[in-house]
Computed example of a mutant assay.
Amino acid sequence: MQEPPKIEFPCPDYPIKVLGDAGETLYSLVMTVMDEHAPGFDRERTTVRDSGKGRFQSVTVFITATGIEQLETIHQALRASPVTKVVF
């Protein structure tokens, strides 16, 4: 069994992808959480993609990850919303 790769912190360009219900609420949630837990992330690199039928969206951001605690906190904050389906 192969071990997952170790992340060295700080880790620039760390991607976080959130899948959820389409609409402004998901995007706002992601921006609010990133502003709080990854201040200074590059909003220009944020991508939003709609699903084929337009019911769902994915929002991808790139942050400088500073540690496991930060990543766990971000994932918990994003998963706490009912509009969020999956966080990668």
Rank of each mutant, 00 (worst) to 15 (best):
R45C: 03
R79V: 11
L71G: 00
A38F: 02
K85Y: 15
S81V: 12
M1T: 08
E24G: 01
E24K: 12
V86Q: 15
G52Y: 05
G67F: 08
H37R: 10
E69W: 00
A77D: 09
A77N: 13
D13H: 06
T64I: 14
P12M: 04
E72T: 09
Y27S: 10
L78A: 06
V86R: 14
G20R: 05
M34Y: 08
P10T: 00
A80S: 15
L71Y: 00
D42N: 15
V87N: 09
L26T: 01
T25G: 08
A80C: 11
P15K: 01
E3V: 03
V83T: 14
T47F: 01
G54F: 02
Y27C: 05
T46P: 00
M34V: 01
L19E: 12
Q57G: 00
T47C: 00
P5H: 07
A77M: 13
R43D: 07
P10C: 07
A77T: 13
G23Y: 09
G23E: 01
H75P: 00
T73A: 14
V18D: 10
V18H: 03
E8T: 15
E44Y: 12
M1D: 12
L19F: 15
S81A: 15
G40P: 01
V86E: 15
E8Q: 14
E44N: 11
S81F: 11
K53H: 12
P5Y: 04
T60Q: 10
S58K: 04
P5G: 04
